[in-house]
Design a protein around this nucleic acid. Structure first.
Lengths: 243, 243
DNA sequence: CGGGAGGTTGATGGCCGTCAACAAGCGTGG
DNA sequence: CCACGCTTGTTGACGGCCATCAACCTCCCG
């Protein structure tokens, strides 16, 4: 795991694994990605990849490590808007004035490269489009989480999302994945305090839902856990009205 | 205000007003929009324009009225993900599998039309792209609101956003606008209960921040109110780390 | 006049924040 | 080697914000 970019458990680079999962890529697209990935850069934990309101220098593709879009208030309150994992795109925008809508901070050391231009490959463009749709879905999920779930549900729901996303880039198997986050970061993501996150983690452990130590987390029964959270299909009926 | 689509206070159709504010439109683009708008449809309050998980029949443009993207949980909990106002686009997506990421419900009677295809006008495409950027910004704002603001701040911040958005389509002036929402809907948007929203509204009234009756709301000093909420530029410093 | 939707207010309680203290791990430098 | 400081995790006591429950009001419309 040193020197070159880490490989996923299937032996493929995580970012490429994700993009291939989103849309079938031809050899040309793969070579474009690998070409850019060969010129990767490293940024250390706590540094920003992008600053809210400032111009976007160039869209980037995360190769390794965890980042987050964050909003910082004047009085010190901080909210994590979304997590960015290997294979995620940063600063991809479609209009002429590329201004960052949020600050992006490295939560761990992050390896990234310039995002290969979508214009070079129709398949790649398709993968980007699907990636964007996923990103929107994650934002919507985060809103529902913060608005209507309890503390325990927020944490569990977030862990389920992270598991699914890491599976998508080949970094999770059998409910097991590396979680290089502090409880403070989980608190900033779930809108809670560290103290309360700690209590909720304790509950998840005591209920046998997760094992988490040494940066490695195991969810013992993801489908059962999801069911327990009532996280089933949430279709609405014909009429959106409530009682 | 009957028969044809309502006009904004400046005498221009709200949706067109907004799109022109986002990007300068040439005559061709305006005619394309007016052409589609002339074939508008009406949907009644409480009905859905779109259902989560189902295919998107065709992207739409809101001409008049209020809608919302909502998520409904099995146990009846409901969260409004974002509001949709005149000039907003629904179901605009960039990949080949147009599936709705959320249900869209009409909060009032809503007049809408098919969204004119972006391919017909480069100017229109630009307006759509900027519109999409705004939409993302509103989602991020909603996340920060739900995650880290108190009840009073959530309500005030939301009202400020609505004011700004309505100004963009010419439906608000001098801090005054029509607010065709019940307190229950504000509760579903802010992640609170109706009872508590009612108490917060009372506070805003008592502090002289707003007047709200008969569906018409006046914010007496928007900049001052924004300052009071600490809603200033929230740039982060060079390092994203906190104490 | 009856019924429903929406608004308003009070009493009570629980979830989660706040404050505080301590433990565990780890790198650094004396 | 060990003291030291820093980060992170952990637990308990206490309090406040907001949910819950309940009642009553106004307004509107059939």
């Amino acid at each position: 795991m040193t020197g070159r970019a880490a490989l996923s458990l299937t032996g493929e680079a995580p970012a490429l694994h994700r993009l291939r999962a989103l849309a079938p890529l031809d050899l040309a697209a793969i070579e474009i990605i690998e070409h850019e990935a060969s010129r990767s850069r490293l940024i250390h934990r706590g540094r920003n990849l992008m600053n809210e309101g400032r111009a976007i220098v160039r869209p980037a593709l995360i190769l390794e490590g965890w980042a987050a879009r964050v909003r910082l208030f004047e009085d010190g309150r901080l909210q994590i808007l979304s997590f960015l994992l290997p294979g995620d795109l940063i600063g991809h925008c479609h209009h002429a004035y590329p201004v960052a809508a949020s600050t992006v901070t490295a939560l761990s050391d992050v390896r990234y490269c310039a995002a290969p231009p979508a214009s070079l490959s129709a398949r790649l463009a398709q993968a980007y489009a699907v990636s964007q749709a996923y990103e929107e879905a994650y934002l919507l999920a985060q809103i529902a989480r913060l608005g209507r779930l309890t503390a325990l549900e927020r944490l569990g729901d977030l862990l389920l999302e992270l598991l699914e996303r890491l599976e998508l880039c080949g970094l999770a198997h059998q409910g097991r994945f590396e979680l290089p986050l502090t409880q403070q970061i989980l608190a900033d993501a779930t809108g809670l305090t560290v103290v309360h996150v700690n209590r909720m983690v304790r509950e998840l452990r005591q209920h046998g839902d997760i094992t988490w130590s040494g940066g490695s987390l195991v969810m013992h029964d993801p489908p059962g856990f999801a069911r327990k959270l009532g996280r089933m299909a949430t279709r609405v009926q014909e009429s959106g009205a409530r009682t």
